[in-house]
């Protein structure tokens, strides 16, 4: 059974159009011009337990709105949502007990108090037993090194520390599903690495389902087994990352560096797309020919000094999705 089921989800917003100039401002004050915008427009998808799902799309595609409906904050205009078999709107308290949520641009930590106080509060909110609490804190300390700054007031934490604190706070009650809304936004390479390690560990050891929205495609590549791509509130791609990338950019590149210049042979299943001094780039479709076949064919004809095979660029593939569905 899918842990998250979404069917024909629609969310409409009323947007007030502001007119320009003083006259327009006065007019808007008395006769506001309202317009209904569909932020989410007929989404349907299932998420299975234990998956790490990347929920991606350009700014304004409806990602955060969807997350906020899945977590029971917003009420959908139409459609159905089931999280752990329940409606997050009708049974908010029971559903959120099963959820961990991190909004990258907000913090649930108490700004003026030492970080540890937030954990003490959460321990009481979720009625976590002392023993269980200590065990979970040990795991969190192991990966996120929370103990280094647990006595620091939250307002004095660096962004990376704060984000680690927020992740730990979202995990303290052992949620079934973890929602991460841009968890690596603005973080340095080290902090990003720690957070990705943590997500993978929790997914592996506790079979936790993770739904991740991000603009960082490294997050997607390193973490996500499944992708949901949205644009303009509609689902445009749904499936494993490899399949989506293969579908959109099935080509790979073989870069060959020559010892000395030579006549470049044509190949029936690969074409030269670029040449720069002694370097040549062949593009080929991996379903038509394997890299080793191509290398074998060319090595007899060319004085090869060095070579490398380049995987298709995920970023290009994703940009292609956004562009073609715009």
């Amino acid at each position: 059974m899918a842990i998250i089921e979404v069917k024909d989800l629609v969310k409409e917003f009323v947007v007030v159009r502001k007119k320009t100039g003083l006259g327009g401002a006065v007019k808007s004050l008395f006769w506001p011009e309202k317009e209904i915008v569909r932020g989410v427009d007929g989404l349907s998808f299932d998420i299975e337990q234990g998956d790490i799902v990347g929920y991606i799309g350009p700014n304004g595609a409806g990602k955060s709105t969807t997350i906020k409906m899945l977590t029971g904050i917003l009420h959908p205009t139409e459609g159905e949502i089931r999280v752990c078999g329940m409606s997050p709107q009708k049974e908010r308290k029971a559903v959120v007990r099963q959820l961990g949520v991190v909004f990258g641009q907000r913090t649930q930590l108490y700004w003026d108090l030492r970080l540890g106080e937030t954990f003490e509060l959460l321990k009481r909110i979720y009625r976590i037993e002392d023993k269980r609490f200590r065990e979970t804190m040990d795991i969190l300390n192991g990966v996120l090194r929370i103990q280094d700054f647990i006595d620091t007031p939250v307002r004095q934490l660096s962004l990376g520390q704060r984000m680690r604190g927020d992740l730990a706070a979202a995990m303290i009650h052992d949620p079934t599903v973890l929602f991460l809304d841009e968890p690596t936004i603005g973080l340095d390479a080290d902090a990003k690495h720690a957070i990705r390690e943590f997500i993978l560990t929790m997914n592996r050891e506790r079979r936790m389902t993770v739904v991740l929205t991000t603009h960082d495609l490294d997050d997607v590549e390193l973490l996500c087994s499944q992708l949901l791509v949205v644009n303009h509130g509609k689902l445009v791609e749904d499936g494993p990352l490899d399949a989506i990338v293969n579908k959109l950019s099935p080509h790979r590149l073989l870069m060959i560096e020559l010892n000395h210049s030579a006549a470049l042979p044509d190949h029936d299943r690969a074409r030269i797309i670029r040449q720069d001094g002694l370097k040549v780039w062949y593009q080929f479709d991996k379903s038509a020919i394997t890299a080793s076949e191509l290398i074998a064919d060319l090595s007899g004809k060319l004085p090869i000094r060095d070579l490398s095979v380049q995987e298709p660029d995920i970023e290009d593939a994703i940009r292609e999705v956004y562009r073609t569905t715009a």
């Binding site: 906020k68 977590t71 908010r92 959820l99 907000r106 649930q108 979720y126």
Partner: peptide
């Protein structure tokens, strides 16, 4: 400020 979202994440009224 939109932080009401975080308050809704608590399993409490």
């Amino acid at each position: 400020e939109g932080n009401i979202a975080l308050d809704f994440m608590r399993p409490l009224p």
